[in-house]
């Protein structure tokens, strides 16, 4: 185990980030009427959940976890999700867009952009309105993407759940304005100031469980338009000539399996992953197809309510 407090009089970088995140999480619990923690099952969510448990120890976090299930997540993710919620002693809310499900909206027939809109963005808005949450934690980081770099830690949403990037509340010191009217809400990003390296370093230092898909293993995959896609279940339609083959791959980011590219890797430990990341020259979101269309696409999605 990595020893973090080597020089006790000097506050370590991770301890500083941890303390800041805990402060943010507590502020939400103290000031908001009905918060919820969005749980995407990825490594950032794992860190966020861990921080929430630390914030309220010995009590469990005083809010539920919520997962927007597109029904196309990796199976291993779902099993992991249920285990972690139980371990944290938190209520788990799972929401799927019922209309989308009835119409069988899927990434193959409808394209990634429409599918994401219906099964993720619309579903999220439905769930937030349904439960009347006035605050939702998300695990986004500012180093991930350009429009996120400009988003506040407490990011205001109007009653239609949309973000107005030109009119953000000034956010000074650690004084967060949590005031909302009925129907309005705030998205809160406790990991705003973490980098990808910080996340891995913290997972290593704190021994935080993550979904095994992050580690290299032999998995059935096909290569499609330059991206390695895992055939996670029989719903994936194979194109002419495509035959799943077993390759040693892992995932740098987790989402819906048909939209998440794998990388060929032999990294089977956290140390291997960190080492691989350090020499990597491709940033992590490139495995997500959603960002490829246009570099302004994330901002557009966020304005419309995407996390």
């Amino acid at each position: 185990m990595l020893e973090i407090d080597i020089v006790p009089e000097r506050r370590s970088h991770l301890k500083r980030l941890e303390a800041e995140s805990i402060r943010i999480i507590r502020e939400v619990a103290a000031e908001m009427k009905k918060p919820v923690m969005l749980y995407s099952i990825g490594k950032d969510s794992s860190v966020m959940l861990h921080l929430a448990r630390k914030a309220f120890y010995p009590a469990p976090p005083p809010f539920p976890l919520m997962h927007i299930d597109t029904t196309w997540k990796f199976r291993e993710m779902i099993a992991f999700r249920d285990r972690m919620a139980a371990e944290a002693g938190m209520e788990l809310i799972v929401h799927t867009n019922p209309q989308g499900q009835a119409e069988n909206v899927n990434p193959f027939d409808h394209g990634s952009s429409y599918y994401t809109q219906v099964m993720k963005t619309d579903a999220l808005k439905q769930a937030l309105s349904l439960h009347q949450f006035d605050a939702a934690f998300g695990g986004a980081r500012r180093d991930e993407e350009k429009s996120r770099a400009k988003e506040r830690i407490f990011s205001f949403r109007n009653s239609a759940h949309s973000w107005d990037p030109k009119n953000q509340r000034p956010e000074l010191w650690s004084l967060y304005n949590t005031r909302v009217k009925a129907g309005e809400s705030i998205r809160v990003f406790p990991l705003s100031n973490w980098t990808e390296l910080d996340i891995w370093q913290y997972i290593l230092a704190e021994d935080i469980p993550i979904v095994p898909l992050y580690f290299a293993d032999k998995r059935p995959v096909v290569e499609r338009d330059g991206t390695i896609i895992m055939v996670d279940d029989e719903r994936m339609p194979l194109r002419d000539g495509e035959v799943p083959e077993m390759r040693t791959v892992r995932f740098r980011t987790l989402g819906c399996y048909p939209l998440t590219g794998a990388v060929e890797s032999g990294a089977t430990t956290l140390e291997d992953i960190v080492q691989e990341m350090l020499v990597a020259r491709t940033s992590e979101r490139s495995g997500r197809m959603i960002d490829h269309d246009d570099s302004a696409s994330m901002e557009k999605k966020k304005r419309e309510g995407y996390f």
Partner: peptide, 20 residues
């Protein structure tokens, strides 16, 4: 994770350095 193989030893040392 506690195993100090060559690679993980180097990475662990690197991370400790990052922390400092």
């Amino acid at each position: 994770m506690n195993e100090m193989s060559g690679v993980s030893g180097a990475v662990t040392a690197y991370l400790a350095e990052q922390e400092q």
